[in-house]
Nucleic acid binder design. Structure first.
Lengths: 121, 121
DNA sequence: TCAAACCTTGCCATTAGTGTTAAGGTCAAA
DNA sequence: TTTGACCTTAACACTAATGGCAAGGTTTGA
């Protein structure tokens, strides 16, 4: 599909789709006329990217994460992962874990705060 | 305590502590000489702020959240919450929820990816 | 009393993500 | 065959969060 369709299907400005490409998070093919040509899977991928960016993960990290997120194929890996990559991913996972628990704590705090308000009423 | 102590205890540059104050996330008292004077609770609060910022929550939202996060006092609320505030907080909570599930999905994806790598070895 | 280690405000710089606009090529449909 | 809707690259601008520095006041200890 072309950029306009991807844009409307993901509610993402074309400006950002081009930016993500510049950051090497997307690599659409090009048609004969130079137009970008995205596969169907790009829709999911863009949504994933946006979710991560909103959650404060910078694009350079997302780029590292992408190989894990090939939701489609069962990703039969022939060669073992480079230990460096394993280490980096483990670290990323710990960081995600920390963020998740921080956000969870705060979500719970809001819940309590609102519950207090309800019982007061 | 003064800014230097808070800074070292929270591993946060003084520059940021002043910035958070400018953003109205902290309001230290001032000593006779103009030095900022933070209460003990500021340590927790700064850690909370940093966690939220790292998780992609902008300071203007954190400011709204702060009343919920008065970890200390049981916060006996005399008056009911303004419905507008309730609505806003509910929305914030939903957004947190979305972020949490996005991050969780990605954490799980990394876990699977690494697990595959392990079984391969 | 002076040096070191604090503190103050203020300003300028940088990075990431995003918005906007300009100048122009392509294509389909009237 | 021209109009309108699409696409291209490029440039400039903004905000949020952060780093850094300069010029100067305060406090503490040698």
């Amino acid at each position: 599909m072309r950029i306009g369709e991807l844009s409307s299907r993901t509610a993402t400005p074309t400006r950002l789709l081009r930016y993500y490409e510049e950051q090497e998070l997307l690599s659409p093919q090009r048609a004969h006329n130079g137009y970008r040509d995205y596969p169907e899977a790009a829709v999911d991928r863009v949504e994933q990217i946006r979710g991560l960016i909103e959650a404060g993960i910078p694009t350079r990290i997302i780029k590292q994460l992408l190989p894990c997120l090939n939701t489609g194929s069962p990703s039969i890996r022939i060669t073992e992962l480079d230990p460096e990559i394993v280490e980096s991913l483990t670290e990323q996972r710990e960081q995600l874990e920390r963020r998740i628990s921080c956000l969870s704590r705060n979500r719970d705090a809001i819940t309590r705060y609102l519950a207090d308000s309800a019982t007061l009423a």
